[in-house]
């Protein structure tokens, strides 16, 4: 063994001591459960059951044929497909408008950010009341505009879209703050150089400076928004419980039901592995984005 300095020995010792609790937590809370999860997914384990059988990939095969799971996947993707572009471009649009304000900037920033910090369960309850067909203020407003009576949360065609709007309501302020940070990081001199170079129209400034300079922010916002939208759960529990007619059954809600209401642990584990695959795909995308960001600096 090569001789090491006292400093190196001290670092090695203290490094190990400092890292030990975190490492222990990673092992018990993250790695061990993951291993158990994958193992569970090839069994028919049910909580409290006396016997456990290995069933190979039967759970995964069952997932493929399970209409409820497929409906929840379809609902989740529909939800993401609506929330994602609206939250990204809406957040960008609001940020662009707010960034140009001087005196009123803080006011708008705070108002748009309110839903992010508020307790979603509580606010979903408020939304439920607001959208109540007879007691809430939305229905009379809607009817004043000359439309017929609607019940957004109990109409199978509208319920998922309503949840998506509430999801968007909660997410847009978060994205706005991220974009505002990105906008503040663009050097003013770039806009001045562009002005001297002849960028006289707003589209020129946006396409040559703003949009490319926001590239890393946009990708980051896209990935975080996708993950957030993917995990839609609270509003389903509070507002629809998957109904009406399964129109708002989402991946996490089904997972919750299978695992913790019906206690079909093996089946739920297989479902979780599928969720994990989606999330892994997203994080690979994000890692690529971070690489590209290094390229810029």
């Amino acid at each position: 063994m090569r001789p090491r300095s006292p400093q190196a020995r001290s670092e090695a010792r203290w490094g190990a001591i400092f890292a030990a609790p975190a490492l222990l937590l990673i092992l018990t809370i993250l790695l061990a459960p993951l291993a158990v999860l994958v193992a569970l997914s090839v069994t028919d384990y049910r909580l409290g059951a006396i016997t456990v059988r290995l069933v190979g990939l039967d759970n995964y095969a069952a997932l493929l044929g399970d209409p409820v799971f497929q409906r929840s996947l379809r609902n989740t993707f529909l939800y993401v497909a609506f929330v994602l572009p609206a939250a990204v471009f809406g957040g960008l649009g609001v940020a662009l408008l707010v960034h140009a304000r001087i005196r009123t900037r803080t006011v708008y920033e705070v108002i748009y950010f309110l839903p992010v910090t508020s307790t979603l369960v509580a606010m979903a309850t408020v939304w439920q009341f607001m959208l109540h067909p007879t007691l809430g203020p939305v229905t009379p407003l809607w009817m004043n505009l000359g439309f017929g009576r609607i019940d957004l949360l109990n109409d199978p065609d509208l319920a998922l879209g309503t949840l998506a709007l509430i999801g968007l309501w909660q997410l847009i302020g978060f994205n706005m703050v991220l974009f505002l940070a990105g906008l503040s990081a663009i050097p003013r001199e770039l806009y001045e150089a562009a002005a001297l170079d002849g960028a006289r129209h707003a589209p020129d400034r946006f396409l040559r400076v703003t949009w490319p300079m926001l590239g890393p922010t946009t990708m980051f916002v896209t990935v975080t928004s996708t993950v957030t939208a993917f995990k839609v759960f609270d509003t389903v529990v509070v507002l629809t419980r998957g109904g009406p007619l399964g129109a708002t059954e989402t991946l996490l809600y089904i997972l919750y039901l299978e695992g913790f209401q019906y206690f079909r642990m093996g089946y739920a584990a297989a479902m979780t592995v599928v969720l994990l695959v989606f999330l892994a795909g997203l994080s690979i995308l994000q890692a690529r984005v971070i690489e590209r960001k290094v390229h810029y600096a």
Binding site: P33, K231, L255, T272, L276
Partner: peptide, 9 residues
Amino acid sequence: IPIQVPALP
């Protein structure tokens, strides 16, 4: 990894 992944075990 969100909490939903290790939740079952």
